[in-house]
């Protein structure tokens, strides 16, 4: 078991390093620099600035310096907002983004599974078709369209919720809804099809033959088996929610990390691009680890790192 975790940790670090390296060189190969804007700066000033941020050194040297700095946990200063470090920016933005992402995931998982189970139990009935129609809409409508629609209907036409910003639970409702519909729809469809398959299994017939109630059959026998494929997509769903937050944060003026990420790319603010990318990747890699752990927990046949014991 321990060797599994060590192996896993090493592979996670290697993945992260590959991402860092890839991003670093891609970022520098994009034309432009933090200092060329429409307003032309004095050439001497620009030289000085580049020297100050070590941007005049060869790329490999810059790369080496960055890694050295990174190992010490320092993501460097922001070039554009010179009074702030990247660590500060992430420290401020992450709690907000995390809150948004976490509640979104929670809403998406819970409502998706419930919708999927109900649809499966009422297979080919009205509720099934209704739930699946909602799911198709949820998948096909992009979250920024959903966000504007929600704002228009529930904040402007019927002013139930505030239009934007992130202050109270009431402010959270619309962004979470906008962000959750897509993943919820995917989870609902997946739960439904996987549930339908599980319900035809022999062990469900066995459970019925024992005289168990339908509720027990669904929750104890069917759902756990049906959730395995759902858990598999959770990793990538978490990714889509994370990336979805950029847009949603922008629309709802939420002070999360998304804003920094998008701005930094436009500004070629190299340390911020690197910092946010590394941070998002680390979260994703961690989510994938969680998914694998959940897999082992749900299905006793999968024992992480253990050879099948007879």
């Amino acid at each position: 078991m321990n060797t599994y975790y060590i192996k896993r940790l090493v592979s996670m670090i290697i993945t992260l390093w590959l991402i860092i390296t890839g991003t670093f060189f891609l970022m520098h190969s994009v034309p432009g620099s933090p200092f060329n804007e429409e307003r032309r700066t004095n050439e001497a000033v620009q030289k000085n600035l580049e020297a100050y941020y070590n941007l005049d050194k060869p790329l490999m040297v810059q790369y080496g310096n960055y890694l050295k700095q990174l190992v010490q946990g320092d993501l460097g200063p922001s070039i554009k907002k010179s009074s702030q470090t990247v660590n500060d920016m992430l420290g401020r933005g992450f709690p907000v983004s995390f809150e948004l992402g976490f509640y979104t995931l929670l809403v998406a998982i819970i409502s998706g599974i419930i919708l999927g189970v109900i649809a499966a139990l009422r297979h080919n009935g009205f509720i099934d078709y209704l739930a699946m129609s909602i799911a198709v809409i949820g998948i096909s409508v992009p979250n920024f369209v959903m966000a504007t629609l929600l704002i228009q209907q529930l904040a402007v036409n019927f002013p139930i919720f505030p239009v934007a910003t992130w202050q109270s639970p009431k402010h959270m409702v619309l962004p979470i809804l906008a962000l959750a519909t897509g993943p919820m729809a995917i989870i609902a469809r997946l739960t439904r099809s996987s549930m339908l398959e599980v319900l035809t299994q022999d062990y469900i017939k066995t459970a019925k033959a024992k005289g168990l109630s339908p509720v027990k059959i669904v929750f104890k026998h069917a759902l756990r088996n049906a959730l395995l494929p759902v858990v598999t997509v959770l990793g990538s769903l978490a990714a889509s929610i994370l990336t979805g937050t950029f847009v949603i944060e922008k629309i709802f003026a939420i002070p999360g990390m998304g804003k920094y990420f998008v701005d930094s790319i436009n500004n070629r603010d190299y340390p911020v691009i690197m910092g946010t990318t590394i941070f998002y990747s680390a979260i994703l890699i961690f989510m994938l680890l969680l998914v694998d752990l959940a897999y082992g927990f749900l299905d006793p046949r999968i024992k992480l790192g253990k050879k099948e014991a007879k």
Partner: peptide, 30 residues
């Protein structure tokens, strides 16, 4: 009546047991 008065055994023991529950759990729930 099911399970208490009349019980049933199915053809394939490889699929008749729920893979995610222990044997004890499955025997005792009846």
């Amino acid at each position: 009546v099911r399970g208490a008065n009349i019980s049933m055994i199915f053809q394939d023991p490889m699929t008749a047991l729920n893979p995610t529950l222990t044997i004890g759990d499955q025997i005792m729930e009846g």
